[in-house]
Design a protein around this nucleic acid. Structure first.
Lengths: 107, 107
DNA sequence: TAGTTATATAACCATATTGTTATTTATAAT
DNA sequence: ATTATAAATAACAATATGGTTATATAACTA
């Protein structure tokens, strides 16, 4: 389960446009119409990228009048970087293999 | 460019099977035939996952007789986690928008 | 040399991703 | 009420992803 969830979050991050959006949100909360002129893609494309980030809980949205402002969830971003270097331990699987004599012995 | 490269590395990481492989390699170098019985997918599927990780420089391969052993590139993994929290700065883009009067002023 | 084991590659398929344009919904302004 | 602006959703297309089975290649074994 843990691996699936982390993989989902990493998928949300694994796109240059979304990484750039995250970098921009680090500077300042932004609404969709501010992000659109920065990228060479359409408004719906930006909107979908933000929606993907929101589903992954990497950003938070707040409506202010006719605008929707997006802000970065820095905690989630930090957690993800941390998780990469602290993956759940699967050494049990290797111990099981060893019991079954399935580990390769060379040299 | 930087964003594209990071996105590529994250794509290589953004899969539960590959994350599990990385966790296993943290314990011990493994060859393909050891990994296969741990997962419910075919040998070619495992082989392709390893190939993907190798292209991203997240693992290194060494042939030992008839086996090919894969080892984790811990440095690359650490760098990636670090990069997530130190994305290149794009605040210039927002400054440009400001000059053009394209930033939204509400409240 | 022939057979076996380990791994990689090829060809293929179903689904996901990422973009597009057109349209809808929500809010603000005239 | 009508019009304009911001953002989301729908429908679609091209490409990427992740699996399969069949086959090729590499190295060991008898």
């Amino acid at each position: 389960m843990e691996f699936e969830k982390l993989a989902d979050t990493l998928k949300a991050l694994a796109d240059p446009t979304r990484l750039k959006i995250i970098s921009l949100l680090r500077t300042r909360d932004c609404c969709v119409c501010e992000l659109v002129p920065i990228f060479n893609i359409s408004q719906p494309a930006i909107s979908k990228h933000l929606s993907r980030l929101k589903t992954a809980e990497l950003v938070h949205e707040t409506r202010k009048g006719q605008w929707v402002f997006y802000s970065l969830n820095e905690k989630k971003l930090e957690e993800t970087g941390f998780a990469l270097n602290h993956l759940p331990d699967l050494s049990e699987k290797l111990k099981e293999l060893e019991k079954q004599g399935l580990l390769v012995r060379c040299e």
